[in-house]
Design a protein around this nucleic acid. Sequence first.
DNA 1: TATTGTATATACAGACCTGTATACTTTATA
DNA 2: TATAAAGTATACAGGTCTGTATATACAATA
Lengths: 187, 187
Amino acid sequence: MSVLREKILHVASDLFQTRGINSTGVDTIVAVAGTTKMTLYKYFHTKEDLILEVLQKGHQDFQSWLSDKLASNTKKPSEKLQKLFDFLEEWVTAPDFRGMAFITAAAEFPNEENPVHRLSAEQSRQFRSYLAGLALDAGVKDADGLALQLSLLIEGSMQAEQMKRGSGAIKYAKKAAKILIELALKN
Amino acid sequence: MSVLREKILHVASDLFQTRGINSTGVDTIVAVAGTTKMTLYKYFHTKEDLILEVLQKGHQDFQSWLSDKLASNTKKPSEKLQKLFDFLEEWVTAPDFRGMAFITAAAEFPNEENPVHRLSAEQSRQFRSYLAGLALDAGVKDADGLALQLSLLIEGSMQAEQMKRGSGAIKYAKKAAKILIELALKN
DNA sequence: TATTGTATATACAGACCTGTATACTTTATA
DNA sequence: TATAAAGTATACAGGTCTGTATATACAATA
């Protein structure tokens, strides 16, 4: 894939998270990326297409990173659920953390018919389903229920962290999660 | 206070939540409110002023409603923490629920210097501080910790509910909260 | 009746936005 | 060397946005 295309995706992702999607014009994106609008519109038909690709790439990167971390650092399925929050803390406290893209995107496009909103909702569902898979493997009975609860803690933390950097929300989310997970494993 | 001023605030609040703040022009607001831009700008110096007032009113309404509910339906302080989630469920499932304004506003204005972002962050802090007060009254030792955890569950639910109406997230948040509260009361 | 306050109607300036058209330059490849 | 592909530079059309200017209508009040 073209290096410029990647650059545009990366710059757009950063600007969208730091300034907001609607507040970031394509002129700004190409200026920061060091290219021109003609090139941007060659790779992305519309700004909406660009937004959708930024979202998709962001979610893929996050999911791959998390899956790899869990795969190479844990063995027992029940261990994965616990370790999950250690890795999320690592993710959140990284200097280039910019929030979870699909959370902010859904807020900027509240209309449920909007393609950007739909993709955001889909990614949120996907993440919960991934958590449910982990819970199921660990032997949790109400895997969907626990997954939903954990997702609330996680997405809440991400949002709190974006609202105020260094909030430490994820630390308390981890504590709460530990309690919920242990109890769910007993039942 | 002028009836038109109230009308503008109400209409703006609704449009901001259903279409997004940046995507809602003042022309749309005055058209729906049945007035003109001249009148809007007489009561609110800038659009940003209007946004700030909408946020403030929304937060006040929410807090008053919740405080009143708790005051008139519960007696024991420890009961308040539990009942809290029943009232929140009532709030969320109301047909005119539109999400928590300060969550979406913070997402649309990510820059921490921005006045709208600052007010949103302040309201989030205020809500957590209110929860901490309830926890303290109930005799919880780490009141701030529990308050933060509950706020993650609550704000996560609000966000989930706005992402997809009827998600039922608040029901699972309530279950998780019950566990966390009971454990915190024991310590 | 005259005046004052409130709201309307409408037009517009200036800025910004997305997306395209046109012409030019560079680089790789056949 | 000729050709094609990729990118640059720049201007612009058409739309939307905030905020203001100007003139008018209407009601209450003195």
